[in-house]
């Protein structure tokens, strides 16, 4: 098993215990913390491979923990949020968290998100990525659908490549804008909406019911492989 180390932070002991047992059963090493302060200390002493972070914590909030961690580490952070915490969730993502699941989450969803986060963006070095009936040849900047060449503008290709190498990971509007258009465009989220819509028309079988480029309301977009869900 992978043996990667996950630090779980939640003030609810029952959730902490259930997650501890479950993640160990899934082959991870698990550390736990009940407060944001304890989490920061533990992450500094023994840096984990990923952090599972509850948003609502006594004392330092999840968002503050994410912000402080980002000052010195880019370890993946998965946020546990709840319905009603949308604003807090978005500010945690803005503060540097990578993804989220909504309580009460299923463990398949949690494990899938963790896997996507632990598979670092840079890890995908193969020149060709295949998702459903889409084949992306990164080195040639060419995209095929059912074997037929799809014509993409340079920005559309950059966007698709960003999604593909981060398969399964949530990409916030801000991240997408920064990676594809550059820092100066970080707040122009309408660019993302327009380009994602265009891209969907070219790669989705039914652009009105997207299955590959899915929207995460209020947060961003995620590329998923519908065959592997």
């Amino acid at each position: 098993m992978s043996g990667e180390r996950i630090l779980v932070v939640d003030d609810e002991r029952q959730i902490l215990r259930a997650l501890d047992t479950t993640l160990r059963g899934a082959g991870y090493e698990v550390d736990t913390a009940e407060t944001g302060e304890a989490a920061l200390t533990q992450a500094a002493i023994q840096p984990p491979d990923a952090l599972v972070l509850d948003l609502v914590l006594p004392g330092k909030s999840g968002t503050e923990v994410a912000r402080e961690l980002r000052q010195w580490t880019d370890l993946p952070i998965l946020v546990l949020s709840a319905v009603g915490d949308e604003r807090e969730k978005v500010s945690a993502l803005d503060a540097g968290a990578d993804d989220y699941v909504t309580k009460p989450f299923g463990i398949d969803e949690l494990l899938a998100r963790l896997r996507a986060l632990l598979r670092r963006a840079g890890d995908r070095t193969e020149p060709t990525i295949e998702i459903a009936d889409i084949r992306i040849e990164l080195d040639k900047r060419a995209v095929y659908r059912d074997g037929a060449l799809v014509s993409l503008t340079p920005h559309e290709f950059d966007l698709l490549r960003l999604f593909a190498v981060n398969e399964g990971r949530l990409l916030t509007h801000r991240t997408i804008l920064r990676e594809v258009w550059g820092r100066a465009y970080e707040t122009e989220s309408h660019y993302v909406h327009v380009y994602v819509s265009q891209l969907r028309r070219k790669i989705e079988p039914d652009p009105a019911r997207p299955r590959i480029l899915v929207t995460e309301p209020g947060a961003g977009y995620r590329l998923v492989d519908p065959d592997r869900r």
Binding site: E12, A18, T21, T22, G25, K103, P104, F105, I107, L111
Partner: peptide
């Protein structure tokens, strides 16, 4: 309501999931 529900769901699904060995 969500906190106990989350703990219950995680615990129950871990017992069912083929990805988790307990």
């Amino acid at each position: 309501l969500r906190s106990p529900l989350t703990a219950i769901r995680v615990a129950a699904e871990s017992l069912l999931s083929p990805a988790v060995h307990l």
